[in-house]
Simulated assay, not measured.
Amino acid sequence: MQIIRRKAELRDLTRSWRQSGKTIGVVPTMGALHAGHLSLVEAARARCARVIVTLFVNPRQFNNPEDLAKYPRTEESDAAKLAPLDVDVLYLPEPEEIYPEGFATTVSVTGVSDGLCGATRPGHFDGVATVVTKLLLQTDADTAFFGEKDYQQLQVVKRVAADLDLKTEIVGLPTIREEDGLAMSSRNLRLCSEARETAPVIGRVLTSAANVIARGGDLSLALETARQALLAAGFTDIDYLEVRSDPDLAPMAKADRPGRLFVAAWLDGARLIDNVPVLPPTVAARSGEKAVEPV
């Protein structure tokens, strides 16, 4: 695995891959890699001839300087985790490779970025859209792989690629969870042992609410029941808990089309997010499916 820090060097390499007819897959990350990230790398390896993993802690997607300062920097251990996965390049761009002096352009997406994390983290998705656009162009990727845990982010990136005619196909893959059902996240590392035992409640509460809605239960009542269950378990604040249509993420007052149930809640000073699919009762009845398997 080559470690590259300059875009000119990366472009020389990808140009040679192109000349020999190789396809390129990229997994953009901010490091602190866990099994969820590694599952994306494995998917890229299975589909593409060459695989690039990018690692860049993007300051423009943090609206809280303290949150940026606390974000783990684990470059050495991340490289060790990638080494057995047959990754071709770990791209670790220097800040000036992404935001050179005089940088004055922002990629901004409306619609799918409205509400949810877009409301509670102002400017976050502008930072995401801008850095991902740059990384897709710098890596010359045919395919980019993202996890569905950050489902709103996934839809923002898909919108960018479609609207700007980027050649890169954006692939979303299912959330990877711990054995107890907690969605894998670098933020889980911030939890004390007691909070870590509590944290999986978030997935169970979402599953329960989604299945109540799929069986025809009142959406508002299901959400309020879920909210009270989270607070009773020890979550201190809930930024949002709502159902949005899939994939346009428009607000839903009733379950009359496929959607997603989203939550962002605070526990032990960490902001945890999760989401599960929600089938409307008519679709669930026709298919015989549950809204989501238990987590």
Rank of each mutant, 00 (worst) to 15 (best):
L261A: 00
H34A: 00
A199P: 12
R47D: 14
D67A: 11
G203A: 13
D150K: 09
G172F: 13
A226Y: 09
R177F: 10
E197S: 09
Y91L: 08
E101I: 05
A210F: 03
Q155Y: 00
V112C: 10
I3C: 05
T198R: 15
A195F: 08
S39H: 08
Q19T: 04
G36Y: 06
A265Y: 14
V278G: 09
L136F: 15
P294Y: 09
Q228F: 02
V112W: 10
L166K: 01
D86Q: 14
R11D: 07
F262M: 09
F62I: 01
L223N: 01
D142S: 06
T110S: 15
R60E: 10
S108I: 07
L116M: 07
L68K: 03
D256H: 04
D114T: 14
T225F: 00
A284K: 12
P174H: 12
S20H: 13
V132F: 04
Q138K: 03
G21L: 12
P251Y: 10
A44M: 08
A253H: 01
V89Y: 08
I52S: 05
R286P: 00
V132K: 02
R204G: 15
A195T: 13
G234C: 06
E197H: 04
K149S: 04
D218W: 04
L33W: 10
P72H: 07
P84W: 10
G181C: 14
A32K: 01
R50W: 05
T110G: 15
V157R: 07
D274M: 09
S208W: 12
R187W: 00
W266F: 03
E75N: 00
V27C: 11
C192T: 15
V107D: 05
G21K: 06
I98P: 01
L90N: 05
Y91T: 06
L221H: 03
F56I: 04
S287M: 14
E97G: 05
T110N: 07
Y240K: 09
A270K: 03
V212E: 15
I238T: 09
G111H: 08
V243N: 02
R6M: 02
L230S: 05
L219N: 02
N63H: 08
R50S: 11
A104Y: 04
S245N: 13
V112F: 13
V41F: 05
V128H: 09
A129T: 01
G288K: 04
W266P: 00
T225E: 14
V131L: 03
I98C: 11
V205T: 14
V109F: 06
T106C: 13
A284M: 08
G111V: 11
P59R: 12
A285C: 02
C48G: 01
R15N: 07
C192N: 15
I52H: 03
T14F: 12
K70R: 15
R121L: 11
V263D: 08
T207P: 00
A270L: 07
V276W: 05
T225C: 06
L182S: 10
G217Q: 08
A214F: 01
L33Q: 11
R177D: 06
E242V: 14
C117Y: 02
P65A: 01
G259R: 02
Y91S: 11
R190C: 00
A253K: 08
T14M: 09
S108C: 12
N211P: 05
G36L: 05
E178N: 12
G181P: 10
Q152D: 13
I273Y: 07
M184T: 01
A229P: 01
R257M: 13
R257N: 04
R121C: 11
L55E: 14
D12S: 13
G288S: 07
T282R: 08
